[in-house]
């Protein structure tokens, strides 16, 4: 009887020891941390310069409405502004070219590049204040790209950018030659910029996640190059006339055509 009990105890002993010790298996010494995988944040990285069969899209923006009334800006509140222009200055809202097309239309690839990412351009874009007007009035940026806001006027400007999807800024530039750098992290069409001292001053910044954006010229033309072949949605934005989209298919090594037309 005693012997039996002993046998059972002996048999159970190692088990009990295991249990009583909490059963914590030895932790293997943490050697070097495992190798990491490269952070894949924005998906496939594309360099427009090296796309083998890149195509493009080009076209123009027509204006079908009646010519808008030109608004003459009253600059009398600031003698400096007044003296920096010899003639009348008109507001840059809807700019109809001599050939009936529209200038200052922001055109960009809205859809079709999902899952692709692009290097942030090294060169900065510049928004200058000249003669109490923004130059240019419409400007495009890639996300993360540096924007330099500079003041060529020897008068007080403040630059009040009021984005809804980005960090804004409101800086004072009271003397000529001042510069301020800023970058927007998120795409946004469009970020309004104004000057509280000169209420007529306004500019618009379009921030796009890809490098495929442009602004129509004095003939109303635009072209976007080095696009990978594929189907895209192109959008044109006009201050005062809203936005329009067009579906385009870009074939390898070919330039597709896309023409917008805005009415009033």
């Amino acid at each position: 009887m005693t012997r039996k009990l002993l046998a059972v105890t002996v048999a159970l002993l190692p088990m009990i020891t295991v249990i009583a010790c909490g059963g914590g298996g030895e932790t293997p010494p943490a050697d070097a941390p495992a190798a990491s995988t490269p952070a894949a944040s924005g998906g496939e990285m594309i360099d427009p310069a090296t796309i083998a069969d890149a195509g493009g899209v080009a076209g123009s923006v027509q204006f079908a409405g009646s010519d808008p009334e030109l608004q003459v800006i009253q600059m009398a509140a600031d003698p400096y502004c007044l003296s920096s222009h010899s003639g009348e200055v008109v507001a840059q809202r809807v700019m109809v070219n001599a050939n009936g097309t529209l200038a200052q239309i922001f055109v960009y690839v809205k859809e079709g590049l999902e899952g692709k990412s692009f290097a942030v351009p090294a060169e900065a874009a510049r928004l200058d204040q000249q003669g109490c007007m923004y130059m240019p009035h419409v400007i495009g940026l890639q996300t993360g790209q540096t924007l330099i806001v500079s003041n060529s006027d020897d008068t007080l400007h403040n630059v009040n950018a009021q984005p809804s999807n980005n960090t804004g800024f409101n800086i004072g530039q009271p003397v000529a030659g001042m510069e301020y750098e800023h970058a927007f992290e998120n795409p946004e069409i469009m970020i309004p910029v104004k000057c509280d001292v000169h209420p007529w001053m306004s500019a618009y910044i379009g921030v796009v996640a890809n490098p495929y954006f442009t602004i129509t010229d004095a003939e109303g033309n635009f072209s976007i190059d080095r696009l990978p072949p594929g189907d895209y949605v192109l959008e044109a934005w006009s201050e005062g006339l809203g936005t329009q989209t067009i579906n385009v298919t870009v074939a390898p090594n070919e330039t597709a055509e896309a023409n917008f037309s805005f009415g009033t």
Partner: peptide
């Protein structure tokens, strides 16, 4: 930094860099 106190105020920020000797004025 007016924006830090009252976001959206029309009072602009004149001193964007506070490091010694950096004032443009």
């Amino acid at each position: 930094d007016p924006q830090a106190i009252m976001p959206g105020t029309s009072m602009p920020q004149y001193f964007t860099d506070l490091s010694p000797g950096s004032s443009p004025y």
